[in-house]
């Protein structure tokens, strides 16, 4: 069939022309599923990374952000939200994604420096201007008549850090007496009039709705509130003891591989450790892990006696099981 042969030759020419399109630069899209208060941090960081990535590779990368309570966000990923990377409030939530959805290996936390936490933070108090209720430390938060705003530890990573900070303070203050610590934390939660699902919701409750005397807040969230509202509206109070929070980040391997985004997603996470990434973290009131950048922002952060979760609770798995699992201590002490 000579006519067919001729047509095949023409088809080959068309194919060759089509193959030329492969020279186009790629447009890549990433989804970063994060926790509540990181909106501003990642807005700035995403723009910086996209610029750097395009300069380096010629590819355009668009990063979509999703924010909510950390535990809630982890569940949406488990239920099928196709996150290329997760940047959550605590390691337990990422462990859950690994264990339940098998989207990333169990040893994910060892893949990046500092246990995959490129920045840290802690828990502080945000009070009304002039601190009219004279709240200076955790004991004041537990006093009757003090209205305390904190989110729900069942859905919010920040709330779990708040709870554990209070518990850790009580243990240190009452000679590691678990019963007294439980009683102390129960008093605090008796003062909580409303539980939001995430840290940003609690900030809204305290700042915009004008509810409560004190907000238990991420340090970065407290600084942000002061910056947004101005120092005439709220004050930050630093307790004598608090917890070192280490919000981790990781690649969601199976999703990234399916999307073909592993390389750019990894570069995205690694860029958080770069000089620029660390600087952006510092500017957004997160404590950089890089010593040089941390020194640059040292004056910004108050000195606090911080303890790690491993030291007091034996790690997230134990803390979760004892305190936040269904029927755990939190369920027992918080009965509304």
């Amino acid at each position: 069939m000579s006519s067919i042969s001729r047509t095949l030759k023409h088809a080959a020419a068309v194919l060759f022309a089509v193959s030329e399109w492969g020279a186009f630069a790629a447009n890549v899209e990433l989804l970063n599923v994060s926790y509540d208060p990181t909106r501003e941090l990642y807005q700035e960081f995403n723009a910086a990374f996209a610029k750097q990535w395009e300069a380096k590779t010629g590819d355009k990368v668009t990063i979509r952000q999703s924010h909510g309570g950390s535990g809630k966000q982890a569940r949406t990923v488990i239920d099928g939200l196709t996150a290329d990377v997760v940047t959550l409030a605590l390691g337990y939530d990422i462990d859950e994604i690994s264990a339940r959805a098998k989207l990333l290996p169990a040893g994910w936390q060892k893949r990046l420096p500092h246990n995959s936490a490129p920045y840290t933070s802690t828990i502080v108090f945000l009070v009304r201007k002039g601190n009219p209720k004279h709240i200076k430390d955790w004991d004041d938060v537990a006093k009757p008549g003090i209205s305390v705003i904190t989110p729900n530890p069942k859905t919010s990573g920040g709330a779990r850090w708040n709870y554990l900070a209070a518990w850790g303070y009580a243990l240190k203050n009452y000679g590691n007496d678990e019963a007294k610590a439980r009683e102390f934390v129960a008093k605090i939660y008796k003062n909580v009039p409303v539980l939001d699902s995430g840290a940003r919701g609690s900030t809204t409750t305290f700042v915009e709705r004008g509810i409560g005397d004190v907000l238990l807040a991420w340090e970065n969230e407290a600084f942000l509130a002061v910056r947004e509202l101005g120092p005439a509206k709220v004050d930050i109070v630093v307790p004598s003891i608090s917890i070192l929070t280490e919000p981790p980040v990781t690649l969601v391997d199976k999703v990234a591989d399916k999307h073909g985004t592993r390389k750019v997603a990894l570069a995205y996470l690694e860029y958080l450790y770069s000089e620029e990434g660390q600087d952006i973290a510092g500017r957004n009131f997160y404590r950089p892990t890089d010593a040089m950048i941390a020194a640059k922002y040292a004056a910004q952060f108050p000195r606090i006696n911080l303890f790690r979760i491993d030291e007091v609770f034996g790690g997230w798995q134990k803390a979760q099981k004892a305190h936040f699992a269904d029927g755990g201590v939190f369920d027992q002490i918080y009965q509304k």
Binding site: S147, P193, V194, S197, G201, R209, G210
Partner: peptide, 17 residues
């Protein structure tokens, strides 16, 4: 005022839920 604000916020949260 605080009670009213709390009730309003709880309604907001219930609506969101």
């Amino acid at each position: 005022d605080q009670k009213i604000r709390v009730l309003q916020r709880q309604r907001e949260l219930e609506k969101e839920a």
